[in-house]
Design a protein around this nucleic acid. Structure first.
Lengths: 357, 357
DNA sequence: CTCTAGAATTGATGCGCTTCAATTTTTGTC
DNA sequence: GACAAAAATTGAAGCGCATCAATTCTAGAG
């Protein structure tokens, strides 16, 4: 199965090599009948253009790269799906690389994308507290997703504050008066959620108690805290527990039940992530869905804007809206699922700040 | 930000272009101190090799491609994670493309991979009944995943029959005597599950009733069937319901409960897929986890074997083992989760058959 | 039938790199 | 210190393609 080159096609048809190239890249420059002959020969011979040679010879590639920390997190997948849809809608391909939570590998893929002179790169960096741009001198359009970094124009993140506000509004709607927030806000994302919760609580005159220390992030951690909260005497017990992540919240439910109380009869519990896996608990969990799909789309649009050199306004990006997903953990009649929306992701902020280039 | 080429590095160090190339590709050929100088210059200048040029000049690429029908199906993700892990363990990168359930796009990506002369391609084709290899003349190592196709060597699929047997063994262990299987076995995968169930039932003298017509595959379909089953008089009612997919099973649970019966007190229900989303139902669902992760690893090993030209034996591949995940829907004391294993995926079969090349 | 603008086609050039035969430098030995 | 063998380095030749100036062909006008 010898490889078929463009010259083979040319010889087959009896035209020059350049004509075949034109037929592929600029069909309008080629006489219709010649074009037909060439296309015929191409499919007959099974010719597939060598991408490496094309790129080397100067065609701009129509491929975006997406580097994800892992593939098993729902949020990342929503990003991938959104990015895929938007890329495809604009005539671009999307190649996804997973770094398997290995920051060396993340860098490796980024360099690979760079070397493959891809049209643009989307990166959802690993959630380490000390994050900084992997490509200090980005030579291709790059957008960082789910990153809050002041001074960097090319970072897009969902509005975590809005998520926090949304959760607290829900607590109020449920008639709750004492909210406990569990989880350590190590990462900016979580800290912003806390801020949103506190802001909304202040407006609503709801008391908020923050319970976070160390690196709590497992269901076990949630379990311990949930149990201890449930064991408090009635007057000192929160009536609404917010887990900063779904995993914590799910653990808390089990902890509360282990202490002999009922969710949602004695305490309400909500999470924050929209992680489908968090459904697995004993009680389906109310949560806030981060708009991953929209984030992926936004990222691609930002890439396209960088490529086009266009100055885009916030409105041309569309909006990424976090959603409240109400389930049994905060609801007396499970099965009913409603969606509440909140104003949108603030895009003006990152559009206004200077690029890191 | 002019691009740095290999010549720039060479000039910087004061050696020839070829030496820099050697330093990158065959460090052992270069004097240690020269190597140090070159590496220093590379990082100082921020040189990144142009992949297109490398490939064109003849380096074999160390990248595998994985084409997935969609990104939001748990099974596909497990495959991706497994493939990623195994690729990386062998010094290969993995690039993932999602066809967004569009078969034109699937073909497009396959052609792209081919043109990018990637080292090998893993394909999980779309689940259409009329599937056939997209690349009729594979010019690069190709492995089809989750496909049962007789006569094709490069197809790897989990042992769906074993999954069926496993489910029925579990039914027997639960003391069930009348099993109802719901779902239409349109695709080979599902048909094989049914066969496994029937085989095991015959051995165990358990009665099996197949309920499948049309294209049942939604939770709503499951709901309707579940309700009708529950409404039967006691003597004619199955005591164990198997959904050929988790979605059907989850729907069936709701249908049974809508008819006033209890799961698991009156009827037991199990699914088949290991879809984490299926946890979302009112009752956590017992299911069979398809070994997607192992399948991805196996696929990569098969690719490596094709590249190495080695004749591999079944044992050198390792095994992909479906697992029973026991949850509340078949268990009176939920919270207890156990794993039961079954013999392995039959690899000898596909290793022995001729390649499609 | 000739001339010319425009359309269609040609083919040499170079993209950045790896490779390999040829050349130079280093090392070890007597 | 001379010589051979080994190690290190060099530089030219492509890899397959897109581009573009140059060339040939076409068709319409006079």
């Amino acid at each position: 199965m010898a490889k078929v080159r463009i010259g083979d096609v040319a010889r087959e048809v009896g035209v020059s090599l350049g004509t075949v190239s034109n037929a592929i890249n600029h069909p309008e420059r080629v006489k219709p009948e010649t074009l037909a002959l060439i296309n015929d020969a191409i499919s007959r011979l099974g010719y597939v253009p060598n991408q490496a040679a094309r790129q080397l010879a100067g065609t701009e590639s129509r491929v975006f790269g997406l580097a994800l920390p892992r593939l098993d997190h729902a949020f990342s997948l929503q990003i991938a799906n959104g990015a895929q849809a938007e890329s495809h809608a604009n005539g671009y391909d999307l190649l996804i690389a997973s770094a398997g939570n290995d920051d060396l590998l993340e860098n490796h893929y980024l360099r690979y994308f760079l070397g493959a002179h891809i049209a643009g790169v989307l990166v959802q960096p690993m959630a380490t507290s000390s994050w900084r741009p992997a490509l200090d001198k980005p030579m291709i359009p790059t957008v960082y997703l789910d990153v809050h970094h002041q001074g960097l124009a090319n970072c897009i993140a969902p509005d975590n504050e809005a998520q926090g506000r949304l959760i607290l509004q829900h607590a109020r709607a449920c008639g709750s008066e004492r909210v406990a927030v569990i989880g350590e806000a190590r990462f900016t994302q979580l800290a912003l959620r806390v801020r949103g919760i506190c802001d909304a609580a202040r407006e609503s005159c709801i008391s908020v108690e923050l319970i976070g220390r160390g690196d709590w992030n497992t269901a076990e951690d949630g379990f311990q805290i949930g149990r201890r909260l449930a064991e408090r005497p009635v007057g000192h017990r929160p009536d609404f527990v917010v887990g900063l992540t779904d995993v914590l919240a799910a653990g808390a439910i089990d902890g509360i039940m282990a202490a002999g109380l009922s969710v949602p009869d004695d305490m309400l519990v909500a999470g924050c992530d929209g992680n489908p896996l968090a459904w697995s608990g004993s009680v389906p969990l109310t949560t806030i869905a981060s708009p991953g799909y929209e984030l992926g789309r936004l990222g691609v649009r930002h890439l396209l804007a960088q490529i086009g050199g266009k100055e885009l306004t916030s409105s041309s990006y569309g909006h990424a809206v976090p959603k409240l997903i109400e389930r049994a953990s905060t609801c007396r009649n499970p099965g009913l699922v409603s969606h509440v929306e909140v104003p949108d992701l603030n895009l003006a902020e990152y559009l206004g700040s200077p690029s890191i280039a």
